[in-house]
Every structure is written in structure tokens, then in C-alpha cells.
């Protein structure tokens, strides 16, 4: 049974220069206990997607169409108060620590217990503290640092505290938005291990957002590749890795070192992502695509099913497969 189903979601921002189509027609589903990773360059809409699921878009953001079904209920029809109850209790977020996600004037423990009290007001102080102690133990933070302020923590410690905070209400789904960016490689590795173990132990579903396809591949069962506001390839990790079909996915994979450490030529992708205020009518990657033909630019791309679990949004692939 799918925990989260997103159907044909389109999100945009009203800006000074016009309406910006940040996310266009994205659909995916995530089963309980599974994890799904979204990769793409900055500005491709992956963060907007995560925020839209939480309904935490900035005031100029607007969900134009689509449905977000969580546990079978459409989040977009919920009232603000109902949504407030769902946040953190059902869906939590792991923010990037470098983002100043912890309030500098409150103690770390208070910021975590605050989430517990908000959603389970029946908890008394001792229970809440006991819970935080267990969480600290799980994420590997020393207990005696619970009463510290965020500025007394290192970057890695802050990230662990944020993970502990995300687990505070035992949510069914955690959205992790670039949690390891700006951490050094060793700490990054530890945090990734933690993310994997929390999935094993808590059986929580994870949406993992990153610009680094190797990290996503390390953690997630399914991978969605995003480009210019659209999902361009979606499938199980192995399928996307072994048989990358969209030219952009191929380029992404070749612009990072592979997981196995195989030496291959790192290929930068030439060109820039299109302007999302006036997105091109045809395939959005066509300007940078080495395989693009004239019809790519003149016709909107269509989804092509390669296997039942592997889809790609590309004209050219259709031709290849049709042959």
C-alpha cells in the first residue's frame, strides 16, 4: 500500500518577472518503509517538491494542480490546522544543518521537546526528556550535551540533533533536504549511515533530496531524476543506474565518480537550465542534449515505460526502444 502518492503536481512562484513554473506535472508514489531519492541541479524544483508535500511553500508559492495523497487522504484539501497536526507527527523534515535550522536562542533539548509537547500534550517533562535521551543515543550524541545551545555544536553534531528532532514524534515519512551538504566527507558518511539505520530500525519512509546522485543511490530504493521542474526519469535504483535512459541522467552519472570507484572520464554538462518563467514548449533538456532532434524542440515530451517500474520522459528513447 502506497504511503504517499503524488499525482500530476504543479507548483509555481509569483515573482516580479512573472509566474515561475517550479514544478510541472510530477507524479510518483512511495511505499511504506521504502525510500525515494530526488536528484537534480539546484533550481530544478526538488526542494519545492519537498516543501509542497509539507505544504510549507513561501507566501508567493502556489500549488496549481495535482493531488498529494498521504495514507489515502489528500493533503491539499486539509485545513491549515489539520495540516499543522500532520506536520512532524506524520511527516517530518531533516534540514541542512548549515542552514541555521536550529534556533540560536533556545537549548537543543527544548527545541526537540517542543515538537513532542506540541503533538502529544499528554507527555510530562520526564517522559519527554527520556525520549530525547534515547534519540541522542540513537544518533550518537553525548547525553551531557543535550542542554547546550546550537552554537556550541559542530556542524556534524547539529546535523545529528536535527535528525534526532525529526524522529521525535516517530513520523511515517521523513523528507531529507540535502542533509549532508556543507559537511566534510567523513561526517557526511556517518550521517548517511545513520539515515540508513534509522530507516531499518524505525521502518520510516524517506524522501531524500540531493544534487549528488551517488549519495541518493547509496540510500534509496527508487530514484527520480529532475530537470527544470519536471521529473525526467523515475525507477528502481538498479534500473536507473544500470540502464540510464534519459540523456540528462546519463550526463549526471558521468559527471560524478561512480559508486564502484571505476575510473571514467568526468563529463561536465554544457549549457544552462532553461528559464522557468517561459519554459520551452518542447523537451526542456533539448538545448543541452547531444541526442536531440528537431522534433524534440517542437513537441512536448511524453512518458515512456521501459519496464513497469522504470519510466523516462524523452522522445529519443521512444524511438530507440520502438526499433
Amino acid at each position: 500500500m502506497a504511503l504517499l502518492v503524488v499525482e500530476n503536481l504543479s507548483v509555481g512562484y509569483q515573482t516580479q518577472n512573472g509566474y515561475l513554473h517550479a514544478v510541472e506535472g510530477v507524479s510518483f508514489s512511495l511505499d511504506a518503509g521504502k525510500s525515494l531519492g530526488f536528484v537534480g541541479e539546484s533550481g530544478c524544483g526538488k526542494t519545492t517538491l519537498g516543501m509542497a508535500v509539507m505544504r510549507l511553500l513561501p507566501s508567493n508559492g502556489l500549488i496549481r494542480e495535482g493531488r498529494i495523497l498521504f495514507d489515502g487522504e489528500d493533503l491539499l484539501t486539509k485545513t491549515d490546522e489539520e495540516m499543522r497536526q500532520i506536520r512532524w507527527q506524520e511527516i517530518a523534515m531533516i534540514f541542512q544543518a548549515a542552514m541555521n535550522a536550529l534556533n540560536p536562542v533556545h537549548r537543543v533539548i527544548d527545541q526537540i521537546t517542543e515538537a513532542i509537547y506540541t503533538h502529544t500534550p499528554s507527555h510530562n517533562k520526564n517522559e519527554a526528556h527520556e525520549q530525547v535521551r534515547a534519540l541522542f543515543k540513537f544518533v550518537g550524541l553525548p547525553e551531557d550535551r543535550m542542554r547546550d545551545y546550537p552554537h556550541q555544536y559542530s556542524g556534524g553534531m547539529k546535523q545529528r540533533a536535527i535528525i534526532a528532532m525529526a524522529l521525535a514524534c516517530k513520523p511515517k515519512l521523513i523528507i531529507a533536504d540535502e542533509p549532508t551538504t556543507a559537511l566534510d566527507v567523513i561526517v557526511q558518511d556517518q550521517i548517511l549511515e545513520e539515515t540508513k539505520s534509522l530507516q531499518r530500525e524505525f521502518g520510516v519512509s524517506i524522501i531524500y533530496i540531493s544534487h549528488d546522485i551517488s549519495i541518493v543511490a547509496d540510500i534509496c530504493h527508487d530514484i527520480g531524476v529532475m530537470y527544470a521542474g519536471q521529473l525526467v526519469e523515475y525507477g528502481a535504483r538498479e534500473e536507473v543506474f544500470d540502464n540510464p535512459s534519459h540523456p540528462y541522467t546519463k550526463a549526471l552519472l558521468s559527471s560524478y565518480p561512480t559508486l564502484t570507484g571505476e575510473k571514467s572520464q568526468l563529463m561536465p554538462i554544457p549549457g544552462e537550465a532553461p528559464n522557468l518563467i517561459n519554459p520551452p514548449f518542447g523537451c526542456r533538456f533539448s538545448d543541452r542534449c547531444t541526442e536531440a532532434s528537431v522534433s524534440c524542440k517542437s513537441n512536448p515530451s511524453v512518458w515512456l515505460e521501459i519496464t513497469p517500474t522504470h519510466k523516462v520522459l524523452c522522445h529519443q528513447c521512444g524511438k530507440h526502444c520502438g526499433e
Binding site: 557526511q188 558518511d189 548517511l192 551517488s214 549519495i215 560524478y256 565518480p257 559508486l259 570507484g261 568526468l266
Partner: peptide
């Protein structure tokens, strides 16, 4: 080892 190349 999941190295990352920072695009600065």
C-alpha cells in the same frame, strides 16, 4: 566511499 565534487 561516496565522494562528492562540489561545484563551486
Amino acid at each position: 566511499m561516496t565522494g562528492e565534487i562540489q561545484k563551486v
